[in-house]
Design a protein around this nucleic acid. Structure first.
Length: 383
DNA sequence: ATGTGC
């Protein structure tokens, strides 16, 4: 094993496949088939499905993959750098004006400030997509003002500088059109094929990928700033993690390419695992050495219903107006009706089960649960 | 997912 040649990685034994989900966490068969198909790609070593595993476009979402000698941009997908940022808001929860904020908060369209200057402060170069910097995007993206529901680990909670009576802001967004353009340029040349790690194409992709990851992080920071300007409060970034990326990582066997597709890192400190807009989010601390889970965790609840099914089922049972409030009495800003139905809470799996699976697998400790106060999706009727 | 595809 000490003399692995350059050809060895692509012809060695099949990857291991592990799905970290209890029988109570229902996982769609198609998602499992997708995971197994990815595991058969040349150079693949480990394929890990997390408890929010669900089918994606070709490759599953809620999964992490490690490979040797070759990397696969299409496994990361088009929203390179997508992730979650959490801010500690300098305002008491009892001072929240959710109804007033829901009526007027507007984070739509190009930011009126100096986007390139903002990027420079974040240490990120401009990309040409700055018209979208500071916008939430579509799909499952959101900005959510939250309150602390319960503290389960007072020491861990205090260590993050948090206080139980203060608001928080969670932002889930990505690299908007930038990542999409990067993947499209790759797919035009290589389709779903991988890139040999020592190739010029791999180096070029990784340079653009790393830029999109940094730009996406800055995007979340600007979304947070726009929301905070809207509610008139200061804030401090507590954490920011990316769940769509490919990064080199050394482990016992040598350098591996760690692909995360809807999988939060377990090696970068605490993360937030959100449920639907009508459910709690979990602030957790990763446990263990990460080797059995590809250094990854679930990134959210995961869809239970397709968007099409969710639209049909929810329209039969609920009015759009009723979906702008949740069982937590929180407010939802989503003026696009299709998106309002697609993202309704029943379209997602129960987040408590997803997190319990992670706890039972020894992968996380729960620090606190966070409840929604105001979920901002979009003010626009289109998109 | 997408300054979105026919």
């Amino acid at each position: 094993m000490s003399t692995a040649g350059t050809q060895a990685p692509l012809t060695s034994p099949p990857a291991t496949v592990r799905i970290i989900a209890s029988p109570q966490s229902w996982v769609e068969g198609e998602a499992v088939r997708q995971l197994e198909a990815v595991a058969r790609l040349p150079g693949m070593r480990h394929a890990v499905g997390l408890p929010d595993l669900h089918p994606g476009k070709g490759a599953p979402v809620g999964a992490a993959f490690t490979s040797e000698g070759i990397l696969y941009p299409y496994l990361v997908g088009s929203d390179i750098g997508c992730g979650m940022g959490l801010w500690d808001v300098g305002m008491l929860a009892r001072k929240a004006k959710a109804e007033r904020w829901a009526a007027k908060l507007d984070v739509e369209g190009t930011w009126s400030g100096d986007a390139e200057g903002f990027l420079a402060e974040e240490g990120v170069k401009a990309s040409g997509f700055e018209a979208a910097l500071g916008t939430v995007g579509g799909g499952n993206h959101f900005a959510e003002v939250q309150r602390v529901d319960a503290v389960h680990d007072a020491e861990g909670f205090a260590a993050l500088g948090l206080a139980a009576d203060r608001l928080l802001l969670l932002v889930h967004s990505g690299s908007r059109g930038l990542g999409e353009a990067i993947l499209r340029a790759h797919v035009d040349r290589h389709a779903a094929g991988g890139l040999l790690e020592d190739s010029d194409d791999a180096r070029a992709y990784l340079t653009r990928h790393d830029h999109a990851v940094a730009w996406a992080r800055a995007n979340r920071a600007l979304v947070a700033r726009r929301v905070l300007d809207g509610i008139g409060a200061p804030a401090r970034r507590v954490l920011d993690v990316c769940h769509n990326s490919v990064t080199p990582r050394r482990d016992a066997g040598g350098t591996r390419w760690l692909h995360r597709k809807g999988a939060a890192p377990s090696d970068e400190g605490p993360v937030v695992i959100p449920g639907s807009r009508g459910a709690l989010s979990y602030l957790v601390v990763p446990l263990g050495d990460g080797t059995g889970s590809a250094y990854s965790l679930a990134h959210g609840a995961g869809r239970k219903w397709t968007r099409t099914a969710a639209r049909e089922r929810m329209k039969e049972r609920f009015t759009a107006e009723s979906l702008t409030r949740t069982p937590f009495k929180s407010h939802v800003v989503c003026e696009n009706k299709d998106l309002l139905f697609e993202e309704a809470p029943p379209a997602y799996k129960p987040i408590d089960r997803v997190v319990t699976d992670l706890v039972e697998a020894g992968l996380v400790r729960v620090v606190a649960t966070l409840a929604p106060v105001l979920t901002y999706k979009t003010r626009s009727r289109e998109e």
